[in-house]
Amino acid sequence: MKPPPFEYLRPESLDELCVMLAGTENAKILAGGQSLMAMLNLRYVFPDVLIDINRVPGLAGIEIKRDRLRIGAMTRQRKIELDPLVNERAPIVAEALHLVGHRQTRNRGTIGGSLCHLDPAAELPTIALLHDAEIEIAKEGGRRTLPIADFIVDYMTPGIEPNEVVVAVEIPLWQDGHGYCFHEFTRRHGDFAVASAGCLVTCDASGTIDKIAIAVGGVSTVPLRGVEAEEVLSGTSGDDATVEAALSFCDGLDVLGDFHGSADYRKHVARSVLRKTLKTAISRARDRLGGLN
């Protein structure tokens, strides 16, 4: 189980990287390598060129600018998970990251790598979708920003060109004290989710939900926003009956089945996971609201 032959390039600046990307065919970018290296070892992929971006400066780092959290694409998942700013301002990111693989894979794995791999059962794309994140992309002679909804094109297909590279993710922050929950059902701790769900929510002083975002992962070709469920819950108190009504959004999901779960079963699990997620997020919003007052 050894990787096939490839040419190895190791750019030492973003400009050099962009030039390499522009000048190579059938190249793969090696970020944290926690998916790509396994796929190489299994000979599922045969790139002619491997461009290792681990030594490109400026691609890693976490900062908050105004109300946005900016995470460099090469920031290791475990760095994000343990970062005090992230835990304080976007606790759902840390909560979800704890469920990503294992500490050894999070030490190497990067946020940009996970987003570009775009496994529908992975946690980070779902989190990015939930936050309406924006993806910063660079290429030779240019930069652009893509809303996550446009970045997620199809099954394991990100909306970037072969000559482009993701350099950062920008996550609009929710107000302090927002409710959140990321929950998933896996066979074992750290496995890809059979179904996962995330929710961000804020309530006004009366306890009425004034803003809510819902996303589910693991069930379809791509992570999905639960727009209908968001509409059902907005402006309500988020009581159990309304939560149940919101779950009917799962009935309409186009669910993929595989060896670890048929489509019907996954749909059912999604419902169960989403129920727990919504209840926890809403209850946390209320608790944290109480705490702030």
Binding site: L42, R187, R188, H189, G190, D191, F192, F259, H260
Partner: peptide, 26 residues
């Protein structure tokens, strides 16, 4: 946990430790 899967054509479906589940400490 442990299922060695095959499809109807005799192709094995579980050929990695990500697909064939061994129990872990948790």
């Amino acid at each position: 946990f442990e299922v060695m899967g095959y499809d109807e054509s005799g192709q094995p479906l579980t050929t990695t430790f990500a697909e064939y589940l061994l129990v872990t400490a948790t």
